[in-house]
Amino acid sequence: MREYFSTGVGVAFMVISAWLSLHWDLQAHSELSEFIFWQMRVPRVFMGLLIGGTLSVVGAAFQILFQNPLATPSTVGTTAGATLGALASLALGWSGVQLSSALILPSVALFSFLGALLASGLVVAVALRPGARMEEVLLAGIAITLASGALAQGIHAIADARTLFLSSQWALGQLPQLGYQKVLLAVLPLGLCCALLIGKKRSISSFAMGEDWAQSIGVSTRKTRVLILIAACLGVGTSGALAGPIAFVGLLVPHLIRMTFHPSPARLLPLSCLYGASFLCLTDLLAREVIDGREIPVGVFTALIGAPLLFFAVARRQHF
């Protein structure tokens, strides 16, 4: 019963938030409404759903994998690597790579993806060592986060004002206004990330009972660990490249679901994907519409709405 309920509410929530996001205030732009709807809103809502779902499912997988409620992609260095890459590209002032006549891959996206890849690659290398413990992987991630942070500070110190402004904008996270071609380019890695993590939910969820136990019931824990890290790197790297490091989604959404529906760890993954998609879609609507004619980075709203929600959920929690 509880399964149907949480899924049903999630689907309804997603449909409503997508519909609202697509149709909000559309009549105000009467003569342009069709263009705005198809060329601006549809790809953006689509990206919002996809990125929100990806970040949340990665967050949920990390929380289960590391048996740590604080684990997010930021904890294992993926976000820090992406941020450093983007900053480096801004500081170098490169514009991008020409993929085809109409399609330029912005170098910020490319660099932040490479940064995420590099940072996660180092952590995966630690995770792959025989007998590596989960807390070692977590520590390696924190070390990489600190190192990237220090490098980023160094770049900040010597950067010019324009780079500083652009990088601080980027660091808040903002859903991009993309054409369909770039949306298509992003669908593959993001979709793959979600599919991998949800498809392997049984293996991933067994980590909630401890890694040794997971191994004894037949889960290949090393493979699962690496698979999660690779999927996370794909998903977070891509979404970071497109939208910047959107704060909190990966931490908040799984926790809110856990406290509301008490799902099994295996159900947490698809539910996180579902609710995370709607959550980012709705907060992006706010980011677009709260101030007329001016867009506020969506990262501000995910934190502004999500953080109090999490706080009250924790404060009101019944302990047994």
């Binding site: 067994s206 009972m209 401890g210 040794d212 136990w213 856990r258 008490h262 099994s264």
Partner: peptide
């Protein structure tokens, strides 16, 4: 065993 507190027996046994 290392178990998270909010797990349910049915989920552990089916896992």
């Amino acid at each position: 065993p290392y178990l998270q507190k909010d797990l349910l027996p049915i989920d552990i046994v089916s896992a």
